[in-house]
Design a protein around this nucleic acid. Structure first.
Length: 812
RNA sequence: GGGGCAGUGGCGGAAUGGCAGACGCAAAGGACUUAAAAUCCUUCGGUAUUAGUACCGUGUGGGUUCGACUCCCACCUGCCCUACCA
């Protein structure tokens, strides 16, 4: 009887004792670095982890059987907020909470039976790990890739921390963790110069990443080409704007500043002060709630100030409006109401002038007073001084030339991508290794003093401030340069910093001379396949690419990309077709499933029940099918047949054909990560084998071959039962060290084929014919078919199409 | 508003432009059993038909093609992402 609860722990123990999955440098073998996104140690492994990891494990195991030296490591992204929230709630040190969770999750991870090389486990909260996170920070700092700047940042008043832009969600701009609406706060923050690499990050050549991820990253970076133009104001200040349409400059009839723009105070006249201040206050309040909803009616207030349009010297009013965002471009725009919908809507509402500067030739002249929409985008330039008469496709360049000659602007590229804010006002993260000295300024902690360790004796005060700020001895130190009194930086690093390089730490988690052993790097990098959820497209996956490129330029890493191939799995939803969550009560616990069915069944079901990249809702009764399959494999292979063995040639030939055909398709399906058809292919082959067994094939050479190939095809997906059956059918330990079987192409060939006979594309007959039938014979046979004759009614066919080995289509 | 993904039986899903519904679940009937579990066999898209079989059928409407679930265009629905990006 198949008893997974007996065999699974047994083999897991044996594999661990033998170090079966230890991956060491072996120059004789081609390497394969298979990486799955490292989990956050929340305390409990959920079905989503299984869905991400076990098919990835199957793929890695498949590569191993194919003869690759496969590295498939695991670790924990162990810094972060939940630990700190637990600390505050239960008065327990985040380290204790985190490491207790890790211990539990290790046990759960081991129950998967995955081929993780546990010697290489890396935990980002270990001092021996974050010592190097700090080292990277210093390298970036020393090479002008890290800098400090006062900046308005999104701040969650509940979590009391700064959030990266992508951690702010939804229309109401709430914190991704606790849902509290975020506020803007001016703080001195540490930044990385990700925008230095914006253009390079748009280049995906040489990597095989899903189009969807490429699109998400491209949109996130949002490169736009245009011009920056300086507008002089009556108050004497210059206002810089970015525009993608410098050709419409002559149609700029007013300017709009974001309410937070630093020059608002300067340009506002005495009489407008009150109205402007009121609007700013309202924007600040709204901004946190619903200001950015695009379909809101536009609002704004005149500042009383005027600017000069630099190309035609027209005096144009300066307004403030919340549809202009401080976070994009320069926080100021030139408004061209005739040709921009947003500006048009605003101009009509506040009776601002609309000047048409684009007119398609051969169309009625556009009269601004009669316009209902901002149109058109392209045509011939009118009312545009020296540009008047210019064709639309030349206007951009000519306008840029013009503003350059006037010295009021130049061509410019703008990105939505911002520099990465990496500082967090929290305790449970890698401390930023900087010392602030009154004499020497910001001084990096010397290498020999790393890591800057987090203190153990900490306490959380209700103010929500980081305990590092309040710690009596940790914060105050001496300057490494002048020896004078100095203070440590109390901010810690964004955890995305830790996860930007963990694939390097896996190479040698205990190496103490460098973040990684160069020998290991040379052998294993780059990552050959990276698997994980798509939700990291604009965060982790962008950061890790930036990190790698920055390190490349510092001579630390090589090559342009860290991960050659990326594949994303879908999501397992609850049985109610909703996202799994504790509050909905639709959570499926993998531990329970393993207890009821065994890991192999859970693995098989997760691979079988949906296309991996799409995911699907969980179904409790469908898993019975996978359980039944494994039971059936068990007794089909082990229980002797009650039919006498007879090596009938037709039977063994059919069996071998099916075996090698299946091997062919399953090899392809593993390669392309079509796990569902891997399992269905195995089920189908088992059905064939059952038939063959009933016909007396059990015990024949062909049967032995089928068995041996079957188990090896099954081994990546269901490693325990495959190992057990491999042993019980008399093979040597371990199946996971066997070579992937070779397809016998001769055996896959059919002797007879079913020829499809169509008339006008409709199926009319099926003819079983020899595989080597000639075109003439096939056509003749088709025309001779009774069904065909009945339809043709004696008429001559217009045309007969023959697809060798497949069909004949008669066009009547 | 923009972008992406998806739409095939009661359900999850198969199908290099060439037999639609593989494989599995559920359901129904039967075998085995004192009974249950497990296992095995049969049926299982719709309509018509005693039957062979015929017709219809992959969200909707067009197109390309000898032939379309598959390619192209438009639309509808659902989900996800994004959102005044100057």
């Amino acid at each position: 009887m198949y008893q997974p609860d007996k065999i699974e722990p047994k083999w897991q123990k044996k594999w661990a004792e033998d170090g079966l999955y230890h991956a060491d440098i072996d120059e004789k073998k081609p390497k394969f670095y298979a990486l799955t996104m490292l989990p956050y140690p929340s305390g409990d492994l959920h079905i989503g982890h299984w869905y991400a990891m076990t098919p990835s494990d199957a793929r890695a195991r498949f590569k191993r059987l194919q003869g690759y030296n496969v590295l498939f490591p695991i670790g924990f992204d162990a810094f972060g907020l939940p630990a700190e929230n637990a600390a505050i709630a239960h008065n327990i040190h985040p380290r204790k909470w985190t490491y207790k969770n890790i211990e539990n999750m290790r046990k759960q991870l081991k129950s998967m039976g995955a081929m993780f090389d546990w010697r290489r486990e890396a935990v980002s909260a270990d001092p021996e790990y974050y010592r190097w996170t700090q080292w990277f920070f210093i390298k970036f700092f020393e090479n002008n890739l890290a800098y400090q700047k006062e900046s308005p940042v999104d701040f969650c008043p509940h979590c009391n921390t700064t959030l990266a832009r992508e951690q702010v969600h939804g229309e109401d701009r709430h914190c991704e963790r606790c849902g509290t609406p975020v506020i803007k706060k001016n703080l001195t923050q540490w930044f990385f110069r990700t925008t230095n690499y914006a253009d390079e990050l748009l280049d995906f050549s040489g990597i095989d990443w899903p189009d969807q991820v490429q699109t998400l990253q491209t949109n996130w970076i949002n490169r736009s080409e245009g011009a920056s133009v300086i507008f002089k104001t009556e108050s004497g200040d210059d206002i810089e704007v970015f525009t993608t349409r410098p050709d419409t400059l002559w149609g700029a009839t007013f300017m709009v500043l974001a309410p937070e723009h630093p020059l608002v105070g300067k340009v506002t006249t005495q009489s407008q002060k009150e109205a402007v201040a009121a609007y700013q206050a309202e924007a600040k309040r709204m901004g946190d709630i619903q200001r950015e909803a695009a379909d809101r009616e536009k609002t704004g207030v005149f500042t009383g100030g005027y600017a000069i349009n630099p190309v035609n010297n027209e005096k144009i009013p300066i307004w403030i409006a919340d549809y202009v965002l401080m976070s994009y471009g320069t926080g100021a725009i030139m408004a061209v109401p005739a040709h921009d919908e947003r500006d048009f809507e605003f101009a009509r509402k506040y009776n601002l002038p609309v000047v048409v500067v684009i007119q398609p030739p051969e169309e009625p002249t556009i009269v601004s007073a009669e316009m209902n929409d901002a149109v058109p985008a392209h045509g011939e330039m009118v009312n545009s001084g020296p540009l008047t008469g210019t064709r639309g496709d030349q206007a951009f360049e000519k306008a840029v030339e013009c503003i350059q000659q006037l010295g009021v602007g130049k061509k410019a590229v703008n990105y939505r991508l911002h520099d990465w804010v990496i500082s967090r006002q929290r305790f449970w993260g890698a401390p930023i290794p900087i010392i602030h000295c009154a004499n020497c300024g910001t001084v990096p902690v010397p290498d020999e003093s790393l890591p800057v360790e987090l203190p153990e004796d900490v306490e959380w005060l209700p103010t929500g401030e980081s305990p590092l700020k309040l710690h009596p001895t940790w914060r105050f130190t001496t300057c490494p340069q002048c020896g004078g009194e100095a203070e440590r930086e109390t901010d810690t690093m964004d955890t995305f910093m830790c996860s930007s390089w963990y694939h390097l730490r896996y190479l040698c988690p205990h190496y103490d001379k460098y973040p990684f052993d160069p020998k290991e790097y040379d052998y294993w990098m780059p990552v050959d396949i990276y698997t994980g959820g798509i939700e990291h497209a604009t965060m982790h996956l962008l950061y890790t690419r930036f990190f790698h490129k920055a390190c490349r330029d510092l001579g630390i890493t090589r090559g342009n990309e860290p991960m050659l191939q990326l594949r994303n799995q879908g999501m397992v939803l609850g049985e109610d077709n909703e996202k799994m969550s504790k509050s909905r009560g639709n959570v499926i616990a993998p531990d329970d499933l393993v207890g009821a069915y065994g890991a192999d069944t859970v693995r098989a079901y997760l691979m079988f029940f949906a296309r991996w990249e799409l995911g699907a809702p969980w179904n409790s009764s469908n898993i019975e099918g996978s359980a039944r399959w494994l039971r059936k494999v068990w007794y089909t292979f082990l229980e002797p047949s009650d039919v006498e063995t007879k090596a009938d040639e037709a039977i063994t030939r059919d069996l071998r054909r099916k075996v090698h055909q299946t091997l062919q398709s399953i090899t392809h399906d593993y390669e392309t990560l079509n796990f569902n058809t891997v399992i269905s292919g195995l089920m189908e082959l088992l059905n064939e084998m059952t038939t063959a067994k009933a016909q007396g094939a059990f015990g024949t050479d062909a049967w032995q071959e089928a068995e041996s190939i079957y188990l090896r095809m099954m081994a990546p997906s269901c490693p325990h039962i495959a190992e057990e059956l491999w042993q019980r059918t008399g093979h040597d330990y371990s199946i996971h060290n066997q070579p992937w079987p070779k397809v016998d192409v001769e055996a896959t060939k059919e002797e007879e084929i079913t020829l499809i006979i169509q008339v006008n594309g409709k199926l009319r007959d099926r003819l079983v014919v020899p595989v080597n039938i000639t075109e003439e014979q096939a056509k003749a046979a088709a025309l001779a078919s009774e069904n065909v004759q009945n339809i043709l009614e004696g008429k001559q066919p217009k045309k007969v199409i023959y697809v060798p080995g497949r069909l004949v289509n008669i066009v009547a």
